[in-house]
Design a protein around this nucleic acid. Structure first.
Lengths: 123, 123
DNA sequence: CGGCATCCTCGATGATACTG
DNA sequence: CAGTATCATCGAGGATGCCG
C-alpha cells in the first residue's frame, strides 16, 4: 500500500490510525497480509521451524521471497530468529508474543471463511 | 496466490483446507487480504456506502481498482450491491452477513496491531 | 454518478547462480 | 543449510478517456 489512508474514517472519530499513511502499523498490516506473510505466520503457529522447513511447508515460495518475508516479520517483531553457529548452520524461526497475538484473528479469519464456503465444489 | 499450499500442515491433520489450491476459500482469502479488499470491508463495517463515498473514503484507490475489488467481493458474497435506477444512478454497497462475519477478525487484527505499536513514532 | 476500456509503468516475484 | 546477488518477467495497479 502506498498512499491509502481513510481520512474520512479517521475524522469520523474511529480509532483507525492504521488508515494513516505514516502510521507504522501500516507496514505491519502490509507485511501480515502480504502474499507470503500470512502463510509464514500460520505455519509458525504450530511449531518453530527451520528455514528449509518453512520453504517446504509453504509450497511455491522461493527462497528469496521467504527470506525477504521473514526479514520483514522479524523487523516488525512478529517473528524471532535464532542462529546456531554450527556446521552447517541452523536457523530457527518462531512467533513472538506479538506474532502469536496477531496469528489469532488471522486464523479466525480463515476459519470463518472455510466454514462458510462449500468444501470443494465449483471453484 | 498461485500454487501455494501447505501440504505439511494439511497432512498434520489441521483443518486448513485453505491451503489447497483448488479450494474456493482460497480466492476469498486472496480477495480479503488483497491490497484494497481489506479497506473496503472495513469501510463498510460502519455504514453502507455509495461508490464515490468509498472512493473518497479509501484514500489513494483508483476507480478501476475500487470497482474491481467490489466486483470480487460481491461475487464472493461478502458485499451486496444495490442499484437505484435514477438520474444520476445511485449504487450502494454494504456488507452481507458473511462479510460482517469476516470483518470481525479483520478488525480484531488491526486493533491488535495498532494496540501493540507505538502511536506515531519512528516509522 | 458509476462505471468500463485502453494503454503503460513499475515493483513484486520467480529463476538461476553463487557464497559462508 | 541458509541465505544473497543478479537478471528477466508478469501482472497488479495507475492514468486517461468514453458511455449509459
Amino acid at each position: 500500500m502506498t498512499e491509502g489512508a481513510q481520512y474520512r474514517q479517521a475524522e469520523a472519530g474511529k480509532r483507525y490510525d492504521v488508515f494513516h499513511t505514516d502510521c507504522p502499523a501500516r507496514n505491519v498490516v502490509d507485511h501480515v497480509t502480504s502474499r507470503w506473510g500470512i502463510w509464514v505466520l500460520i505455519s509458525l503457529r504450530s511449531n518453530d521451524l527451520r528455514f528449509y522447513e518453512l520453504r517446504e511447508s509453504i509450497h511455491g515460495i522461493s527462497e528469496k521471497m521467504l527470506s525477504q518475508t521473514l526479514r520483514a516479520l522479524v523487523q516488525d517483531g512478529l517473528v524471532w530468529r535464532e542462529v546456531e553457529q554450527t556446521t552447517p548452520p541452523q536457523v530457527t524461526y518462531g512467533l513472538t508474543g506479538f506474532g502469536r497475538d496477531i496469528g489469532e484473528p488471522l486464523t479466525e479469519l480463515f476459519d470463518r471463511i472455510t466454514r462458510q464456503l462449500p468444501p470443494y465444489n465449483a471453484a
